[in-house]
């Protein structure tokens, strides 16, 4: 019984780079002079989280992670819209 997954060596380094980028954008989350800057930083972290979840699904050989990524992206979209409504004073 041979393994159908072909082993590729470069998923984990790419995921490590994405996690470093997430840590970098939390600097803006900490410094950001206005609340809208912080919302933009959170949005960036969410996008990078979805991208790295898709890669993690391949690296760990769990296809369910990609479904988690779809649901996460839609939920973070709703969260962004509500943050924007709150900031604009329409809520």
């Amino acid at each position: 019984m041979n393994d159908p997954w072909i082993l590729l060596p470069f998923w984990y380094p790419i995921i490590a780079v994405l996690v470093i980028l997430m840590a970098g954008s939390t600097i803006r989350l900490y410094k950001g002079p206005t609340p809208a800057d912080r919302a933009v930083a959170v949005d960036t972290v969410n996008t990078l989280t979805v991208a790295s979840l898709i890669l993690l699904g391949v690296a760990f050989r769990e296809i369910i992670f990609i479904d988690v990524a779809i649901v996460y992206s839609l939920l973070s979209f709703v969260a962004t819209l509500f943050i924007a409504k709150y900031l604009g004073g329409e809520l």
Partner: peptide
């Protein structure tokens, strides 16, 4: 698609703010 719409929402809210 969600990224484009979300950034538009934040920009609009920021200008209103």
């Amino acid at each position: 698609f969600t990224n484009a719409v979300g950034s538009h929402a934040i920009a609009r809210a920021a200008h209103r703010m």
